[in-house]
Simulated assay, not measured.
Amino acid sequence: MTDLAKLPVTVITGFLGSGKTTLISHLMRNPGGKRLAVVVNEFGNVGVDGEILRSCAIPDCPAENIMELANGCICCTVADDFIPTIEALMALDPRPEHILIETSGLALPKPLLKAFDWPDIRSRITVDGVIALADAEAVAAGRFAPNVAAVDAQRRADDSIDHETPLSEVFEDQISCADIILLTKPDLAGSEGVARARAIIAGLAPRPLPVVEVAEGIVDPRVILGLEAAAEDDMDARPSHHDEPHDHDHEDFESVVIDIPEISDPAELVARIEELAKTQNILRVKGYASVAGKPMRLLVQAVGARVRHQYDRPLKPGEARTGRLVVIAEHDDIVDNRIRAVLCPAAEAAE
């Protein structure tokens, strides 16, 4: 790459728990000969994904090439956060050859593309492509399609068949903005579920889009890097529910951070998260826990009532044996004290 060449950026979008961090971890380990940098935009003020990715750092993507923005949506903090971060990455020696941006699961991708039109960086970077991840099982079940009356009834006590939740708009915007769709977790959906998910996506997409099945984030980097889409110059082909001025806000969603004491059994924590999803319509839980008698930290990732957990790294000397979870829901479903009561029943009782 010459000094005059535009630095390519790939925007990786997708709904909560669709596998964005897993995909980026794979690309970091398999960069296709490119020197990568990563920007992670978290929802809320606790950076879970950034820490996961830093633990995967390798020479082609060292820890200093991984930057985290946890102060709000990138496109809402362009001057204060996004531009300085991009400029800092471009000033690294050696300079990255490709930047990956992992958006928040609640982010609308098109406003982010508009941020690339900022005069300070437009002449120096280009959006190589927008990659949208879609959970095959969830899409096949109709959870994030336009008519989700059954889910709406559970989440909002509104069973109008024409009612579109903010979740459906986010999902549609992500599909509409994409250059390639990665259909994740196809093993959970099965062949019929994958076929149904493909049909739903084809019905939502404003133009024919390639759809690639991806398990555990494993995809050849040649498939998604080097697309040369110049998406910042192709905005009209990427329609959005939020194209009108001043229509971009995040008040539909809210997050709360819960500090939890050391736990004795991961299964008990999983059961509590499942209870939250079923009784309080929680969309996403992610974070860490410390398990009594275990030298490793427990990583927890949940999408609705589907909870995954694994030990991800040894606890550091002197590290507190406590945990921290980020809980995300639609605005009306966040009730702080109820969430704490479910996740930390012993602490609530002590108070």
Rank of each mutant, 00 (worst) to 15 (best):
V127H: 14
C56P: 00
F82Q: 06
G17A: 14
I74G: 02
P84W: 12
R124N: 12
C73L: 07
G50Q: 12
L27F: 10
K20W: 05
G50V: 12
C73T: 10
P109K: 05
G47I: 03
P62D: 13
T21G: 01
G44M: 04
E87H: 15
A5I: 03
N45G: 13
P62M: 08
P109Q: 02
E87C: 13
F43R: 00
L112C: 14
E68F: 08
F116I: 00
T22R: 09
A70M: 12
V46A: 13
D49L: 08
D93S: 14
A115K: 03
K20V: 08
H98G: 02
S18H: 04
S123N: 15
N30A: 09
L100E: 05
M90T: 14
C61E: 02
A134T: 06
T21P: 01
V130S: 01
D60S: 11
E68D: 04
G17F: 01
G105N: 04
A37N: 03
R122G: 03
L133T: 06
L69A: 15
P111I: 04
N41F: 08
R29S: 10
G72K: 08
P111S: 12
F116A: 09
T22C: 10
V130A: 03
V127A: 11
P109T: 08
N41D: 08
A115N: 11
I131W: 01
I74L: 08
D135K: 00
A88F: 01
A132Y: 02
A5Q: 15
R95C: 09
K20F: 15
W118Y: 15
G105I: 01
I131S: 00
I121M: 13
T77C: 11
V40Y: 00
H98K: 04
P111D: 14
K34S: 13
K20P: 13
I66H: 02
F82R: 06
D49G: 13
G47E: 11
R122Q: 15
D128P: 08
E87F: 09
D49Q: 10
V48Y: 07
L4H: 13
G32Y: 08
I101T: 00
I12C: 07
R54A: 01
L7R: 08
G33L: 07
P119C: 10
V127N: 01
I131L: 05
P59G: 15
G32L: 09
A63G: 07
M90I: 09
T126W: 02
D128S: 12
I74H: 00
I86S: 00
P62S: 12
R95F: 07
G50F: 09
L27D: 11
E87Y: 07
E102G: 04
T13A: 15
T10S: 15
L89Q: 10
A115S: 15
